[in-house]
């Protein structure tokens, strides 16, 4: 059984987690369609080390994992606050 280390809940069975795709900068709300299409549909699909959003489903906790997509090795997991320190304001 493969184990992933959840920053909130500790080591848990991989089947408790959901992969949310690569961490990428979101376009500005008014950005062109092409920028949104790229963000929503296109993928780097890197063969190598990637930085991804993951969720521990039973607790709905989202965090970031670094993983090698060739070896299936999980290198590091950490809270999203390490990368996203400021609150995103969608009102404007």
């Amino acid at each position: 059984m493969k184990i992933m280390n959840c920053p909130l809940n500790g080591p848990r069975n991989i089947s408790e987690f959901v992969c949310g795709g690569e961490v990428e900068a979101m376009p500005a709300p008014g950005a062109a369609d092409a920028a949104w299409a790229d963000y929503v549909f296109l993928e780097n699909n890197t063969a190598g080390v990637v930085r991804e959003w993951w969720m521990h489903a039973p607790t709905s906790y989202w965090f970031i994992a670094e993983r090698d997509t060739r070896s299936d090795e999980i290198l590091r997991t950490y809270p999203a606050s390490e990368v996203f320190a400021e609150r995103q304001d969608f009102a404007t």
């Binding site: 795709g21 296109l42 993928e43 780097n44 699909n45 063969a47 997509t69």
Partner: peptide, 18 residues
């Protein structure tokens, strides 16, 4: 399965996940 890797060599980004 290697579509994105080969397309990237040509500078093309695909809507594909392996």
């Amino acid at each position: 399965g290697s579509s994105s890797v080969v397309a990237a060599m040509a500078g093309i980004k695909l809507p594909i996940r392996t």
